[in-house]
Design a protein around this nucleic acid. Structure first.
Lengths: 244, 244
DNA sequence: CATGCTCAAATCCTATAGGGATGCATCTGC
DNA sequence: GCAGATGCATCCCTATAGGATTTGAGCATG
């Protein structure tokens, strides 16, 4: 909306993050489509884009002041994550809200994958990664948990980060990919699943339990702690869920 | 290569599969990017595109006689499957061959996911799906298994179909997504993992065992049979693997 | 011979143009 | 007043143009 069509700036992209230099050599070249992808992902992950909302290609392009081409590319990647759906010739839409059944399926899948991740992560845990996990739990404890949306965004972000770190700690690229296929949905559920932040105290305790189990180095314990956590999340969500 | 640049046909796409009509109303509208995606996926799945090969955007566009735009979109989707990798400003490349470690990780992930799929599928098995599974196993048995590449393509296709059907039979969209995150890699490993078709007899017997276990309706048996199958595949592959 | 430079072709990346379809507001006829 | 037709705006989709970057060959130099 700001600076809408202020003039053609074709090809003059040497001042944004493209040619980012650090220490004298280019480190992480990035193209516009990557930027758009991250922007859209952030909007989806923190709830700015609500389920069911249309994501217009041209509209997004105008908003970000780019051409539709990189937006198409970014959305094509996002489609494969399940966070947006596409209908040919009709465009993209944020995936609809979770039904009760969707939620049950998601929890079933988490229960199949996340305890295994905890077990594998435990047997390969490095001190550095353990520190990162401790930091995530600390952030979880210290994050504000007010009633408004923005108030517990940090809490949700720390929650997602904790689980994602465990997936990465497995050192298994395919388990990371499998969790990633769920991760976005998990986060979306946290935002729009109906269950609020009321279970924070319990959830924090369970995360601490998982972390403790990982610290002991006993893979079986870690697996059990994670399974326990996921099951309790499911139980609380069912209890809190609205009538429909 | 054939019919290279025979002339501009801009906007005349009312004769290909776009406006496909059946019974009077349009049923499944398809855009060019979908066609390109399927074309590339087929090339990857049956080995026409070998690991490490460059996949040029412009080149593919010329070959399929379309513009680069839909090719970009198709490749963006494929990137998220892990079958092609992208480097900014350098283009796409078919994912490299499996190392021993990659193979171990893939089998670890399959062992975490596929037995669960078998268990879930078993408890929700419908006669129609069971028939499809039986057909896949029958195709597995009847498929030619010659020494040349094209000779056992059908065999590999039936193998992939069997596992994918079980994933779908879970009725859990997230388990399907998780398997899909692996599925492409599994197929690629079958093609280029070094292990040939020597284990066909054993593998067929194991697939039959999985099918039998599913037929009994005992989820525990199905899970065990699938775990046994994956573990034996791993064992055979390790035994057959070349020195490096 | 090995190494560095120059240049040209190929390729990637983004913007723009325009065809076709859809949706919505407006208008007309009953 | 209301149903259907019409026009306009919006959007998706593909092609094309052109700038920016990479790459590899050819050539010069130590």
């Amino acid at each position: 909306m700001q600076k809408a069509s202020n003039g053609p700036r074709a090809g003059s992209r040497s001042d944004d993050q493209t040619g980012d230099r650090r220490g004298g050599r280019t480190v992480n070249r990035q193209v516009l489509a990557d930027h758009v992808y991250e922007e859209l992902l952030a909007s989806l992950m923190d709830g700015r884009l609500e389920p069911g909302a249309a994501v217009s290609i041209d509209g997004t392009a105008r908003e970000l002041d780019v051409s539709p081409t990189p937006v198409r590319e970014a959305l094509a990647r996002l489609e494969h994550t399940g966070m947006v759906r596409r209908v040919a010739l009709k465009g993209y839409r944020v995936a609809p809200v979770f039904t009760r059944e969707d939620f049950a399926e998601l929890m079933e899948a988490r229960l199949a994958i996340e305890p295994v991740n905890a077990r594998l992560a435990c047997s390969r845990l490095t001190p550095e990664r353990l520190a990162e996990l401790e930091e995530a739990v600390a952030d979880l404890k210290s994050a504000p948990r007010g009633p408004s949306f923005a108030d517990y965004k940090d809490y949700l972000e720390a929650d997602e980060r904790f689980h994602q770190l465990i997936a990465k700690q497995t050192g298994n690229q395919f388990m990371v990919a499998a969790y990633a296929a769920l991760g976005g949905q998990v986060q979306r559920f946290r935002l729009f699943g109906g269950v609020g932040i009321t279970d924070a105290e319990n959830a924090i305790a369970e995360h601490q339990s998982v972390l403790d189990a990982l610290s002991t180095g006993d893979p079986e314990k870690a697996e059990a702690a994670m399974a326990d956590h996921v099951q309790k999340v499911r139980a609380r969500a069912i209890a809190d869920a609205p009538a429909d």
